[in-house]
């Protein structure tokens, strides 16, 4: 296969993504609680983000089509929606693999899993709509209107719904009702009892030995007969050390701050993977992955759009998609 003018950028993209794959396995460190499975985040999250970009681009072209009635804009909207769909499926599959390794099942109707499935169905309906109308002008008009409404639901499904849900296995500090991701404060002399999600916690004691600060916290959960005691700790540098798991749950309790003199602590609930990007190596590879998958999406979009435009030129008005 002979190389051509313009292939340099594509080869650079190919090498870039190859470097991301290499780094994902050999540069990014293992994350405590997730093991090697945590590496999939480097692909899973950027692909999900690029999905939103592709669907948004598709909606923009649909609006342009409704405004100017230019069939090329409709072709661009279809190309972007197809790339978005492909990425959405890829994000769902990588998420399911992660879920099987870490949570023990490919699918557990977690709020974020459910919302991405709904999004997939919404865009599957977009393509079903396109194939169900024979008249090309009508098909384009209806599909464009539908596409705009589909894009309006996207931010709600991807960003709002999973965060307002009562509980999710996804790393998400905002799952606590009314939380600002800051956790809750407890005091030995003041408010000893607080609620984390649907878990009631009570501070029993706060001790400091050597370089370790220990908080003893009683936990009562719905449907739990006995009270459990968790002992999260802070190391000498004031960073969370032990993060005990809530009984029968995937969540962990983390001690964010402790003042032994005043007898106050600030604690929060964390899912495995929270703060994954606080490691600089992971962060840089993650950002590189975002750029790589964005570039790949643009390339796919460009190829598909060219094919659709060729089809339009050959058979004007008869683009069978």
């Amino acid at each position: 296969m002979a190389l051509r003018k313009g292939d340099g950028v594509k080869i650079f993209l190919g090498l870039w993504i190859a470097a991301v794959i290499y780094s994902m396995f050999l540069v990014v460190p293992q994350y405590v609680g997730l093991g090697d499975a945590g590496r999939i985040i480097i692909v899973h999250v950027p692909v999900a983000w690029v999905t939103t970009a592709a669907f948004s681009l598709s909606a923009i072209y649909s609006i342009i089509y409704l405004w100017k009635r230019n069939s090329n804009s409709d072709a661009a909207a279809v190309a972007a929606a197809e790339v978005g769909m492909l990425y959405c499926v890829f994000a769902t599959v990588t998420g399911s693999i992660f879920a099987e390794v870490v949570w023990g099942t490919f699918w557990n109707w977690d709020p974020r899993e459910t919302s991405i499935l709904v999004l997939l169905l919404i865009y599957a309906a977009y393509f079903a709509l396109r194939s169900s109308v024979d008249d090309s002008e009508r098909r384009r008009r209806l599909a464009a209107v539908y596409n705009v409404f589909a894009a309006v639901t996207m931010p709600f499904l991807l960003f709002v719904a999973p965060r307002v849900a009562d509980s999710t296995l996804h790393p998400n500090c905002a799952f606590l009702q009314g939380s600002k991701c800051e956790g809750v404060s407890l005091s030995l002399t003041g408010a000893k009892i607080a609620q984390l999600g649907d878990v009631v916690i009570e501070l029993k004691s706060l001790t400091k030995s050597d370089a370790l600060t220990q908080a003893t916290i009683e936990v009562r959960m719905p449907g739990m007969k006995n009270i459990a005691t968790l002992v999260p700790t802070l190391d000498g540098a004031g960073k969370p050390a032990d993060r005990p798991e809530f009984p029968g749950q995937q969540f962990r309790m983390v001690l964010l701050e402790a003042d032994t003199a005043a007898g106050t602590v600030r604690v929060n609930m964390q899912a495995p993977g929270t703060n994954l990007l606080s490691n600089p190596r992971t962060l840089w590879v993650f950002l590189a992955s975002n750029l790589g998958f964005l570039g790949l999406a643009y390339w796919l979009y460009h190829i598909r759009r060219t094919i659709l435009q060729v089809q339009l030129t050959l058979t004007p008005g008869e683009m069978n998609i």
């Binding site: 296969m1 594509k10 794959i21 290499y22 190829i303």
Partner: peptide
Amino acid sequence: MTTALIVWVGVFLFLLRIDHATQDVA
């Protein structure tokens, strides 16, 4: 890692071929 890289090289070459073919037709 090797499996992922082999898959990516395959996908990349396939895309490059499709890209060339599309450019030719256009």
